[in-house]
Amino acid sequence: MAYLAHLGILISIFVMLSMSLNLVVGYTGLLSVTHVAFFGIGAYATAILLTMTDIGFFTSVVVGIIAALTSSFLIGLILSKFDDDFYALASLGFNIIVFSIFLNLQSVTGGPFGISGIDRPELFGFIFTSNVSFLALTLIALVALYFLSHFIVNSSFGRVIKAIRDDEKALQIFGYRTHYYKLTIFMISAGMAAVAGSFFASYITFIDPSSFAATESVFILSMVILGGLADNKGAALGAATIILLPEFLRFVGMPSDIAAQMRQVIYGLLLIVLMIYRPQGFLGKYRL
């Protein structure tokens, strides 16, 4: 049961992440590869506050959101002026800067040592120690973020960001200041990623910069693409598939000397086959 709950927690955290990235990549059509930076900012905010101060988990989540909103506002001011490939490149640059800060600001982040001994959340004296109780808490956060995302994409604001994806220039001709919309959705997405980061840090109880390298942004992006762009349920399916597939392969009986390598090969092949037969993802309406 603890293992299943563990998988549920990981899936929930990565559904939060892929859903938030889907707002930028799927709904707005901006190829951002910096998402893991905001995931990391949320994780480090929680890790630092829980290990160095008496601040509780839920306050640390708020601090993480504020930190992510602030940093995404600053970088978003620059990014929102770019389109297409340049947007992707500039966002990658930001990811590298944040990763370097995590790695080198040793007095605050612990540098390559990371931060260990991060507490589990506590509410009215109840500590979410068991995997099952932590899963329940994570699911509440996930449902809240799902409805937030659902509300955004179905609002008038959501219709504008979808129009930016379809034809930004036409929208500008009609007088829309698209920079403002791109910046706003980028910030909302960053705040959601920070929430996922806080849950990740508190659940794993240890973080180091390796969890927030640029390759992890590609990992999250692949969840969105696999699940399907511009569909929240697709993002959830993509995250669940990418988390569950390698776990399922742990149970495929193979000789121990080749098992790990073969699992990687099968995992890669399955993803390739899925992309050949379903290039727009499971539930996607658009291609990147």
């Binding site: 049961m1 603890a2 293992y3 790990a260």
Partner: peptide, 24 residues
């Protein structure tokens, strides 16, 4: 009996492997 699980030194995979080894 020795049971090996791969984690690629990735914390989330480490947690998955550990939970599997204990629970399953």
């Amino acid at each position: 009996e020795l049971i090996f699980e791969d984690d690629q030194l990735d914390p989330k995979m480490t947690a998955s492997a550990t939970n599997k080894l204990i629970d399953i």
